[in-house]
């Protein structure tokens, strides 16, 4: 199994604040890995660092074979990040937004329509300006752009937030399909029930680092924690339990 993400003692700064203060993380191909931890623990920063948006200033960081400490830009086209912000242009329509995102990343225009259909953005919605959409709908547009691009590594930051039950199921289905197609998924989520059911492995983040401590302080909602940061293997998903430390 090829290694998709390899972080060793990774440090990243926002201004002068060390959002990552020594993260170790290994993710292998076709895994679904859940990052969990309190607010401000550094989950979002790990995802942004893996996307090449947050510069790793010390330690090692290798994503999809690209050394992020050398050229973080090289990895970006192969990675999809669904963040808190949806990165949509308010004045453009749904279809325009997805088309721009796909073509900017070097994709084909023909992949746009199926992705919109898949996310249920049909009827009048594709021709609607994004500014007039609800938060959940914006989220789906953002997801549609991700599905249309179909990158090798999916980084999902709170993907369930703002979606209703029906679309959460849809999202889970999309993630499982992606893994079957050979993609790799890393997600951060507070929706423990859903995320645990989805993820093949759980990594705990705290204080901008991944403590290898077998018994980290505080209640751990990991069911059956045996090995370090081990988690339940989701049924039907090829995954591998690996040690984090």
């Amino acid at each position: 199994m090829d290694q998709v993400i390899r972080l060793r003692s990774a440090v990243a700064l926002v201004g002068r604040f060390p959002v990552l203060a020594g993260v170790d993380l290994d993710v292998f191909g076709t895994e679904i890995v859940l990052l969990q931890g309190a607010n401000g623990a550094g989950k979002t920063s790990i995802l942004r660092a893996c996307a090449g948006l947050l510069r790793v200033v010390a330690g090692e960081a290798c994503v999809l074979g690209v050394e992020l400490t050398e050229d973080p830009r090289a990895v970006r086209r192969r990675v999809g990040l669904l963040g808190h912000a949806t990165a949509l242009y308010d004045d453009l329509t749904v279809a325009d937004n997805v088309t721009f995102a796909v073509r900017a990343a070097g994709g084909e225009r023909s992949s746009v329509r199926p992705a919109l259909d898949r996310l249920g953005l049909t009827g009048r919605l594709p021709a609607t300006r994004v500014a007039s959409l609800s938060a959940g709908q914006r989220r789906r547009v953002s997801l549609a752009a991700l599905v249309a691009r179909d990158p090798e590594l999916w980084l999902l930051d709170e993907p369930h937030a703002g979606l209703d039950a029906e679309h959460r199921d849809l999202l889970d289905g999309l993630v499982r399909d992606a893994v079957v197609r050979g993609r790799t998924v890393v997600l951060a989520s507070h929706e423990h029930h859903r995320a645990h059911a989805l993820a093949g492995r759980i990594v705990t983040v705290a204080g901008g680092a991944t403590p290898p401590d077998p018994a980290p302080p505080g209640p751990l909602p990991v069911p059956g924690a045996g090995a370090v940061a081990a988690g339940a293997v989701a049924p039907g998903v090829a995954s591998e339990v690996t040690s984090v430390a």
């Binding site: 003692s9 020594g22 170790d24 623990a41 980290p216």
Partner: peptide, 30 residues
């Protein structure tokens, strides 16, 4: 920042750095 994750109290003085790891994992060259 790293002490947020461990049991060692924040603001531990330098002496704890020599007596034992204040925080988990080696601190990288930065």
């Amino acid at each position: 920042r790293r002490s947020e994750s461990g049991p060692a109290p924040a603001g531990a003085t330098a002496s704890s750095a020599s007596s034992g790891p204040l925080v988990a994992g080696p601190l990288p060259p930065v």
